[in-house]
Amino acid sequence: MTRTVLEVRDVQKSFGAVTAAKDISVAVPEGAVFSLIGSNGAGKTTFVNMVTGYIKPDSGSIRFADRDIAGMAPRQITRMGIHRSFQIAQLCNDLTVEENMLLAGAIHGASGPSFLRRAHDPEARDRAVATLERFNIAEHRDRLVPELSGGVKKLLDIAMAMAGDTQIMLLDEPTSGVASDEKFPIMDLVMEALRSTGVTVIFVEHDMDIVTRYSERVLAFYDGRIIADDAPDEVLLDPEVQRYVTGTPA
C-alpha cells in the first residue's frame, strides 16, 4: 500500500447561497495522478483553492504532512510542498521568462532569498534555464510574458511552481487557453517533467481524452459534490457523470 499524502475530509464551502463544496472527502496516495472533472461552476477550482489555502473551508479538515492545513495561508502551504498552477497563468508581465524562473528559484532556494546575492547570478541562471529546458521553453527565455503564446505561459506557470521542493502539484486546467493541437504535446511535456520527480499530481481538465490518457483516478464534480470517484473508464461510464459532466448518453 502506498502512503496517503493528502486527505480531505468532509469539507464544506458556501459562497452565500452557492454551495461550492459539499461533503468533499478524498484520500490521495503518494505519487498518484488524479484528475478533477465537472461542468463550469462545479467546484473544481474551489477544491484546488481550498487545498492551496486561497479559500478557507467552512468546515472539514485537509490533512497533509501530519497537519491540518485547512485555512493556512497559501505561502505556508507552498512552503510545506503543495504547489499549484492557475486556470489563468499567473506570471509577472514586466519580467522576462528567465526572470520569472529566477524569481521562483530565488524564493525556493535552500537559504531563502538574499539581499546581497544577485538574482542574475550565473549559477541561478543555469538552474533557471535547466528548468525551462525541462519544459521545453528555454528558447523564449529573453522574451517578456505578454509576448508569449497561451501554451508557453501555461508551461512557465507550471515550471515556476515546480522550482521548489514539490510534493503535491495541483494544475488548474493546464490546457485551457492552449491551441487544440498543442494540448497533447503540452500535457506530454508536463506529465513527463512531473513524473520524473515522483510528485503527486491533481489536475483539473475538461478534455476527456486527456483525462483518460494521463490520470489514474478521476473525481467527477457536480454542484459542489463529488458524484463519482474511480478509474477513468469507470467514471466515464457512470450515468450521472454522463448526464451532468460529459453530456454523452450511454
Binding site: T52, A73, P74, R75, T78, R79, H83, R84, Q90, L91, C92, N93, D94, L95, N100, L103, A104, I107, H108, P113, M160, A161, A163, G164
Partner: peptide
C-alpha cells in the same frame, strides 16, 4: 519587482 507585478504569484511561490 515581482510584487509590483503580481502579488498572488509571489505569495504562491512562498514569499
Amino acid at each position: 519587482l515581482a510584487t509590483r507585478d503580481n502579488e498572488l504569484r509571489v505569495e504562491y511561490l512562498g514569499a
